[in-house]
Design a protein around this nucleic acid. Sequence first.
DNA 1: TATTGTTATACTCTATAACTATA
DNA 2: TATAGTTATAGAGTATAACAATA
Lengths: 139, 139
Amino acid sequence: MSEEVIPHELRLAIMRLARRLRAQKADDTISDSQMSVLAKLHHEGAHTIGQLSEGEKVTPPSMNRTVNSLETAGYVARGAAPDDGRKVVVTITAAGTEFVQQTQSRRDAWFVSRLEQLTPDQRTTLDAAASVIRELADS
Amino acid sequence: MSEEVIPHELRLAIMRLARRLRAQKADDTISDSQMSVLAKLHHEGAHTIGQLSEGEKVTPPSMNRTVNSLETAGYVARGAAPDDGRKVVVTITAAGTEFVQQTQSRRDAWFVSRLEQLTPDQRTTLDAAASVIRELADS
DNA sequence: TATTGTTATACTCTATAACTATA
DNA sequence: TATAGTTATAGAGTATAACAATA
């Protein structure tokens, strides 16, 4: 790992693989940023517009528009915050939850189908590296 | 690799790592798509508009606009094709080459700094998996 | 006629600035 | 006054449709 070439090519391969994984959605009616917000609401529960814009590193007007699109699609709902009349609480709907689950299934299926093309040795190598990749992602 | 859990978590880790890599934009003055075209010209030499649009999976008008931006920035130049008067050959300039090298170095820096946090054993494991990840990304 | 590149136009996602309602 | 959300407007990037030049 003393060479510069290996990190460079590994970085490109990881970004390219992630790009292909991201393309596997339940359908093409929803953008990447919309999908990201929907997944966040699914995993972490309700958020305000401000919390979402901060978490997704987007401006409040942009997040407002993203939430508008998801609301029109029926995947999220706006509600009043009990403690503060200025805040808007965004929650995921049943349809939104189902969409997230379908998308995750599809991405997993695509990834598994690719893994099945590898040799047993390659899968063993990748399996050993999985924990390292997790650590890199969380470091 | 017969379990579903491992592909699922590996997939999430790869997507999360890619998301963090993508966030390391430094102070770039050109977009991702422009950078991608510039890198292609740098590594693979001159291409026509049609070749670029096909390779980047974008429509010809979009690629035309991307090339316009790069040309205005002084990073590429248009030239006539000797064999076919309809074609336009796009080549990278010296300034474009330098920009690619500097930008890629900046983007690699973050990744290298993360790799340096790993143990030697972890780096060896990851190094062995790099070719498998490349194959996955290109499969 | 078919192909290559370009122009015209529109839609999406992002941003900044200004506005409304509430604290 | 300050904050949370929204609206107005503009700048990239992408797309389809139509056009010009060349094969």
